[in-house]
C-alpha cells in the first residue's frame, strides 16, 4: 500500500455484547485524509466496529472490548484515556439525521459551546463557515434561528455534518449517512465527502456498493464479525482476493 500516514491502527479487536461476540480479531489501518468504506451484509458488525472508534459503544450495557485501538498512536481503550477529547477529535454522523430540537444556529454551536467557546462573533463565524463547508449556507442563511427540525431530511443530515465539523474534528465517522435520504440528497452528500476528505479522515459504513465504489479510497469487507478483506477500493471492486467478497459485491448474497 502507498506510503500514507495512519490515523487509526486496530489490532486484534474483539467485542462482546454479553456472551455474543460481535467483532472477531479485527485488524485494520485507517489512513489519514482518505475515505475508508466499510461494507458487508446487515448484522456483520460494521456499525459496531465504527462505534468502537469513538467509543460510542460505551453507552451500551454489557459491552466488553479486548485488543488494541490506537488513535494517533494512543490506545483509546486505556484506562486513563480521555474519551471526551477523543470524541472531540473523532466526530460522528448517524444513520438517521439527529439534529437537536433547537434552532439551526444552536445546533451548530452546541459543540463549540460545550467546549467552552462563548464569544458570540466567533460562534457566528463558525456557523457560517461550517454551513458553507456542507453547502447548506445559501439554503438556510435567512432562517438560522428557526427550528432545525423544520429542514428536509437531506438538509438535516448536512446540518449534522456541519455540527460535527464545528468541533474541528480530525476524523469523521459516518454510519450509513445516506440510507434515510433520497437520491438527490444522497448525491449531494457524496460530492461533499470528496471535498471534506481534503481536510478530514473519513470512515463510512454503507450498504450501497456503488456508493462505496464511487467515494472511497479503501474498502473493508465485513462478514459475521470478521474483516475478510481490506484493500484499495479499485482492487476490492475489480479483483478481490476473497471469493466471498466477490460474491457479495456482485450481489450474489447479502
Amino acid at each position: 500500500m502507498e506510503n500514507a500516514s495512519t490515523k487509526f491502527e486496530i489490532d486484534k479487536l474483539n467485542l462482546f455484547y454479553g456472551s455474543f461476540q460481535a467483532l472477531i480479531d479485527i485488524d485494520m489501518t485507517i489512513y489519514t485524509n482518505k475515505i475508508t468504506a466499510l461494507i458487508g451484509p446487515s448484522g456483520c458488525g460494521k456499525s459496531t466496529f465504527i462505534r468502537t472508534l469513538n467509543r460510542m459503544n460505551d453507552l451500551i450495557l454489557g459491552v466488553k472490548t479486548t485488543g488494541l485501538v490506537k488513535f494517533d498512536e494512543m490506545d483509546i481503550y486505556a484506562v486513563d484515556y480521555d474519551v471526551i477529547n477523543l470524541r472531540k477529535k473523532v466526530g460522528m454522523v448517524f444513520q438517521k439525521p439527529n439534529p437537536f430540537p433547537k434552532t439551526i444556529f444552536e445546533n451548530i454551536v452546541y459543540g463549540p459551546k460545550v467546549h467552552g467557546e462563548k464569544n458570540r462573533d466567533k460562534l457566528q463565524e463558525i456557523v457560517e463557515k461550517t454551513l458553507k463547508e456542507v453547502a447548506l449556507w445559501e439554503e438556510v442563511k435567512d432562517r438560522l434561528h428557526k427550528p432545525a427540525l423544520g429542514l428536509s431530511g437531506g438538509q438535516q443530515q448536512r446540518l449534522c455534518i456541519a455540527r460535527c465539523l464545528a468541533v474541528e474534528p480530525e476524523v469523521i465517522l459516518m454510519d450509513e449517512p445516506t440510507s434515510a435520504l433520497d437520491p438527490v440528497a444522497t448525491s449531494k452528500i457524496e460530492s461533499l465527502l470528496e471535498e471534506l476528505v481534503e481536510k478530514y479522515t473519513i470512515v463510512i459504513v454503507t450498504h450501497n456498493m456503488q456508493q462505496a465504489g464511487r467515494v472511497s479510497d479503501y474498502t473493508s469487507f465485513f462478514l459475521s464479525g470478521k474483516v475478510l478483506e481490506t484493500d484499495k477500493t479499485e482492487i476490492i471492486f475489480s479483483n478481490p482476493t476473497n471469493k466471498k467478497t466477490e460474491e457479495y459485491i456482485t450481489g450474489r448474497f447479502g
Partner: peptide
C-alpha cells in the same frame, strides 16, 4: 427523549452532565 439526541451530544464530546 430519543436515544439519538444523547448519542448526538456525546459524539460531539459533551459530557453526560452537559
Amino acid at each position: 427523549v430519543p436515544m439519538s439526541y444523547r448519542e448526538g451530544s456525546l459524539s460531539l464530546g459533551a459530557t453526560k452532565l452537559q
